[in-house]
């Protein structure tokens, strides 16, 4: 299908982009990679008045280090995330999860920031950002502000981004120490969204699990942390039994939906199984 008509703006800087958003009228959509927005527009689920295309805002692309933090430009494509040496070194969980997003063509266009700002609960990256305690830098007419991941994802397809604001970069604390990571994705066909997925990062110390961070994909309207499991794993022995015990509480506090691929109770079960697998792998079992 053909999208409905819209006005098109193509800024080259963040300031221009903010002006274009401000001037764009009632219904402005920000086009990052467009790999979700354009299909939605083709299906006429969205018919924005103005589309602000960030493709030429080069300052939003790329990955850099700032001390203990990795700064990922919102317009860095999935492909560039996967091949970035800094991410491979300091945030391999992001690369691992990004490799499972859609297909190579989509990964060439789709962007890290776009996927996070879209906040699709079945998308793979929000749970990873949540697990890594990422921070989101939002630019607006009145300057910039930083929001933690736990505050960024507000509801189904809804984030802390206010009208007129733009996600410009994502700050990811480097994992230091003896961390292992794993993204366990469960879907029925290769290019599909996650039915459920689990992002796990586990730090081992003296033969025990010192800290585990677990993000859940598609277990509710927003990505979630498996807090009960994380708590149970803190200080636990690195054994299959201890991890399995802890993983049983992975679905606590979740509210998954029911659809063609899974009803809620099955999603809850999958969260437990996948958490066990992800944590085991991340812990080196």
């Amino acid at each position: 299908m053909i999208p409905a008509p819209f006005a098109y703006e193509r800024p080259t800087t963040v300031d221009e982009a903010l002006q274009a958003i401000a001037a764009g009228g009632e219904d402005v959509k920000i086009l990052a990679g467009g790999q979700s927005l354009i299909p939605v527009m083709r299906l006429r689920l969205a018919a924005p008045e103005t589309v602000v295309d960030l493709t030429r805002v080069t300052e939003l692309r790329g990955v850099r280090e700032e001390g203990d933090v990795l700064v990922i430009g919102a317009m860095t494509t999935h492909h560039d995330v996967i091949t970035d040496p800094l991410i491979a070194q300091h945030a391999p969980l992001i690369a691992e999860a990004t490799e499972t997003v859609a297909d190579r063509q989509v990964r060439h266009r789709g962007t890290f920031g776009g996927a996070l700002a879209h906040a699709d609960p079945a998308g793979d990256l929000p749970a990873v950002a949540l697990a890594l305690d990422a921070e989101f830098v939002l630019a607006g007419p009145n300057g910039r502000r930083t929001v933690g991941a736990s505050d960024f994802f507000v509801d189904y397809l809804t984030t802390a981004l206010e009208e007129g604001e733009l996600l410009v970069e994502i700050r990811v604390p480097k994992l230091t120490g003896s961390w292992g990571v794993r993204y366990e994705k469960f879907n029925r066909v290769a290019q599909a969204w996650s039915i459920v997925a689990v992002a796990a990062a586990v730090r081992r110390e003296n033969g025990h699990i010192a800290e585990a961070r677990i993000g859940l994909t598609n277990m509710g309207p927003t990505p979630l942390r498996a807090r009960a499991t994380e708590a149970a794993l803190a200080g636990a022995a690195v054994t299959a039994e201890a991890i399995a015990d802890a993983a049983r509480s992975a679905a606590e506090g979740t509210s998954p939906s029911s659809d063609l691929n899974a009803q809620a109770d099955y999603r809850e079960h999958l969260a437990q199984v996948l958490t066990r697998r992800a944590v085991s792998a991340a812990a080196g079992l």
């Binding site: 193509r10 299909p39 299906l43 493709t55 063509q105 989509v106 060439h108 266009r109």
Partner: peptide, 26 residues
Amino acid sequence: DTSNCGACTVHLDGEAVKSCTVFAVQ
């Protein structure tokens, strides 16, 4: 119309993309 089938794949500046999920202006 959902970017699933890939029949429209072309190379844009050397990278494979789905040309149904890129606006010509881009």
